[in-house]
Design a binder for these strands. Structure first.
Lengths: 222, 222
DNA sequence: CGACCATGTGAACACTGTAAACATTGCTAC
DNA sequence: GTAGCAATGTTTACAGTGTTCACATGGTCG
């Protein structure tokens, strides 16, 4: 019951995942060392192999944990969003990239090397779970006639791509230094373009702030 | 002059980059070993350090080479595209994701770990160079009145995000097995959604093939 | 209590990136 | 042409890695 047990840590598995999460946050998923997480957990390196097949399996576990966290963040965002289905969808996207700026290493861990290749069906299902909130919002918006009657999978693909792509660009550093506020602006802009499209439209682009606004949003202000 | 020189390989630097490119193509950028590229180049490991500061510098060099290749692919795509500026823009995006499916490891090498963090201004400039074709097409489209009068940077960000995101999703394996044809369909769909937007529009979505079509494209068929 | 099974440890192996000292070559100046 | 120099490769070595093997420990059940 005490915190120190010579053998039989208690439940090492979770402790290892927790240690790995900290280690990933510190030095990123590529400079991540099995031995150092063992050290951090106060255990010898081979002990890890009682709970994980190999280093990649451990990394897969942290990736899964990270996925659950980003999903939670997106759920929270939906919960606190206005009732408009398009705005809810938008909120999930913004939450996605906001998670990426706030926890870039954890975000990178999810998009890691041979992770998907190693755990194919699992990772794919997990991806679908993560995007379920977006999908639900989109379906609702479509049913409300606020979205074009186009196969939902195509819309989902575009939405996932734009949001994941923005997050990735930020995390890779291609947009320079990006803080939370800037990330939010980017996400607002990008989702607005996605919503309104590139083509000119009668009254879609009259917002003076330089950041595009979805027509659905503009209604509230007009 | 002969191919075999005991010392003084000739120009090792390029040979190392070439070897590294093959090595990356074989085992991906993360399982990439400085020693094995030295072996492949027929040279001892420390010889690499005469031409590159460390392993990351070598990886940065291959990333740069990969960037030039994807830029070339995009330029080719523009050259063979119809004259419509929106279609040209679209062609660059499609070429981008097509490169990603055809050379996933090389694509991943460009979005590598601390690459940008290590070579900040360089990588950023190189990114801007890569997207220059897209930008030019967009500007042309905007000047032709085919694109909304919105700050070009916002459109660029959305375009880059959607295209990079799709490529990344494919490369990460999140969309399952994706061959060149499927990738092309995805890219067509995604760019069409980006072009037309999510919102319902009078006559934008009547294509029966299930793949969205830009109005600009549809004109030709009408 | 004793046997067993899960879970931990220690030593060892092949491999990695990198540093230091040394060897070989091509070029340049006398 | 040859001495010297700078450039370029090599050998050896070290710390650190992922992983395996044989062994140690401890909780659990007959």
């Amino acid at each position: 019951m005490a915190t120190k047990r010579a053998y039989h840590h208690g439940n090492l598995r979770e402790a290892l995942i927790a240690a790995a999460l900290k280690e990933v946050a510190r030095s990123g998923p590529e400079a991540f060392s099995l031995r150092s997480v063992a050290r951090r957990a106060g255990v010898s390196p081979p002990a890890v192999y009682r709970h994980f097949a190999d280093k990649d399996a451990l990394l897969a576990a942290v990736a899964l944990e990270c996925s659950e966290r980003i999903s939670a963040a997106m759920r929270d965002a939906v919960a606190n969003a206005p009732d408009d289905p398009l705005e809810r969808f938008r909120a999930t996207g913004i939450a996605y990239v906001q998670f990426a700026v706030e926890h870039p290493e954890h975000f990178r861990a999810m998009s890691s090397p041979g992770l998907v290749a190693h755990t194919p069906q699992l990772q794919r299902l997990q991806f679908e779970a993560r995007t379920r909130d977006e999908r639900e919002s989109l379906v609702a918006a479509q049913q409300a006639g606020k979205i074009a009657a186009v196969p939902i999978e195509e819309l989902m693909l575009a939405a996932s791509s734009v949001v994941h792509g923005l997050a990735q660009l930020i995390v890779e550093g291609r947009l320079g230094e990006v803080d939370a506020a800037a990330a939010r602006r980017f996400a607002l802009s990008v989702t607005a373009v996605l919503g309104a499209g590139l083509m000119p439209r009668a009254e879609a682009y009259d917002d003076p702030r330089g950041v595009l606004t979805l027509p659905a949003t503009r209604k509230k202000r007009g």
